[in-house]
Design a protein around this nucleic acid. Structure first.
Lengths: 210, 210
DNA sequence: ACAAACATACCAACCAGTCGGTATGTTTTG
DNA sequence: CAAAACATACCGACTGGTTGGTATGTTTGT
């Protein structure tokens, strides 16, 4: 039975392809400048399919934020630094990993959430809320390791793990903006080097050589 | 020589009002989502006036970037911290000043250059170039004080003044993104507090109490 | 008078969203 | 079991409003 049952294993369903396409196109062109037809073309489907899966363009924006967040969760959840025993090593490993993936075309390493929230924070409250939720969620994950490292190595320090975690996200978002302005990821890597030095200093590690 | 150049003091000319309006509206809605009519309405002029002063919407974007840069130049050039004798005090004064102006509605304190370059870096090369130029120009001003402070207090340190200046801009840009996501400037102030602590540590100043 | 600085009217292209329709399962029911 | 009823996924022409830009007239400063 089931002769022509070859289904999802080879071809992802339309909804996922639309979300993947939206991720790519919106990171390249921005949310407002991206038309529904742009996304359909990139996904290889028609407008009928788009509005079958999403109520509106804004609805897609919210769904794309969730989709991006899931992709990031998989990416960082499976990264090698996650296996390190020492929490400070994991924090530094996170920063090094983020620096390592700064390569290739700009839309491939920039953040969909930061891109969308910058233009839509006032006009599309649902998108703003989604971006805030997922950025905060990722920061909370980072904050876990920071909190563990702080308990071990700097329990009396005045800064909070949550605040430092949000700061890492701010540096990343700003690094993406500068990378877009300069046309390449080099400046972003420099920013992460400064951030790494800051974290080392917060944990009283000598900054020594490069 | 000495012709009657009296003109601008009393009446704000249409071109300037269009640029002021563009600055405000684009920072609130983004570049792509802002229509020429939006800007005309905010400036109180008609489309005829708009296309009398600007060749195209993209041309306005470039001019608005220059306009924003000039405004920033005046703002920071006249700020009190500029009078401080010690270069490190000026660097810290700059950061404190940037934190102090984080107040009021989000479009009032965010950066037009970062907002525009994030959505237009790939589709509007002229805008990307303008934003890069003016961000770099502002960073170069900051780098002057940093370089003087470094020569005084940390001449052997491995980081370069230019790189640290760009890093301050990245933190600011990222702080704006987070402020937009969270709907207020508090998180941006937290980010600047971290940046200030980093700079203090780079210059071997004890971070001590808050 | 003459040019710069506007305003009015208009257009062709574009865009988000709609709608009638098709093809292929899945569930219900006689 | 089979037909009917329903559900899911998708297609693509169409629409009504919008948008960047133009063509042309009017006002204003010198």
């Amino acid at each position: 039975m089931s002769p022509a049952k070859t289904r999802s294993a080879t071809t992802p369903p339309g909804r996922t392809r639309l979300l993947d396409a939206a991720m790519q196109v919106i990171r390249a062109q921005g949310y407002a400048a991206t038309t529904v037809d742009d996304i359909c073309r990139a996904a290889g489907v028609t407008k009928g399919a788009f509005f079958h899966h999403f109520e509106s363009k804004e609805d897609l924006g919210v769904a794309a934020a969730a989709h991006f967040s899931q992709m990031a969760e998989r990416l960082f959840g499976a990264a090698p630094y996650r296996e390190l025993a020492d929490p400070l090593d994991r924090v530094l490993g996170y920063l090094d990993f983020r620096a390592a993936i700064l390569a290739g075309p700009i839309p491939d390493f920039t953040c969909l959430l930061g891109t969308m929230v910058q233009e839509a924070y006032d006009t599309h409250p649902a998108i703003r809320r989604a971006c805030d939720t997922y950025i905060g969620g990722h920061a909370a994950e980072v904050a876990k390791d920071i909190a563990a490292a702080k308990a071990l190595y700097a329990p009396a320090a005045e800064w909070s793990p949550e605040s430092l975690a949000l700061y890492t996200q701010a540096v990343l978002q700003g690094a993406f903006v500068l990378a877009k302005a300069k046309g390449g990821p080099e400046v972003a890597r420099d920013c992460l080097a400064h951030l790494r030095r800051y974290v080392l200093q917060l944990f009283n590690r000598p900054t020594s050589k490069e």
